[in-house]
């Protein structure tokens, strides 16, 4: 899927930049640094907007296009700020054959978003994720840290209402 870019204005703080600098300092000389820096940067900022990637590029000397190439290759890197409530729907095989597709459809319908998007109020973001390994609970979704298993479309509204 082509990565969607954000329209949200960047609001990074000096504290965040200090943390990013520390991460670059920590990994900078490591040959495989870029992925780890991006992972830390996403932890720090919640997503990887151009402002953050540019800082990484200038501080590491790795071309910006290459960093962006890495950021758009891996599905866990996000160019969009996630919603306060991050919903991940497992679309692994076990979940799929047990009806994860309709669950996803229901969630998207209720929130008025497509997979990979954040709801208009910025509250919910919905992503399809690869197998979470909780196949015994299929179909499974996670909402932030919480796991909901054996979910049916009819249960979705009640689950979302908790947030």
């Amino acid at each position: 899927m082509k990565k969607k870019m954000t329209t949200v204005t960047f609001a990074g703080t000096p504290e965040q930049e200090l943390k990013l600098d520390a991460a670059i300092e920590k990994y900078g000389k490591d040959e495989g640094a870029i992925m780890r820096i991006l992972q830390d940067a996403q932890e720090i900022y919640g997503y990887l907007p151009i402002e953050v990637q540019r800082m990484i590029s200038i501080k590491t000397g790795v071309p910006l296009a290459e960093i962006y190439g890495v950021a758009t290759f891996y599905s866990q890197f996000s160019l969009n700020p996630k919603g306060k409530v991050a919903i991940s729907v497992c679309l692994g095989t076990a979940c799929y054959v047990k009806g994860a597709g309709p669950v996803m459809e229901k969630i998207c319908e209720l929130l008025g978003v497509q997979p990979g998007e954040t709801s208009a109020d910025g509250k919910f973001s919905v992503d399809a994720t690869r197998c979470l390994g909780a196949c015994g609970l299929a179909p499974v979704i996670t909402i932030n840290e919480d796991v909901y298993g054996k979910l049916q479309p009819k249960d979705v509204a009640a689950v979302l209402a908790k947030y």
Binding site: Y74, T129, R130
Partner: peptide, 8 residues
């Protein structure tokens, strides 16, 4: 340890 980032 190195972490993946979501690429099969």
């Amino acid at each position: 340890i190195r972490l993946g980032a979501g690429a099969f």
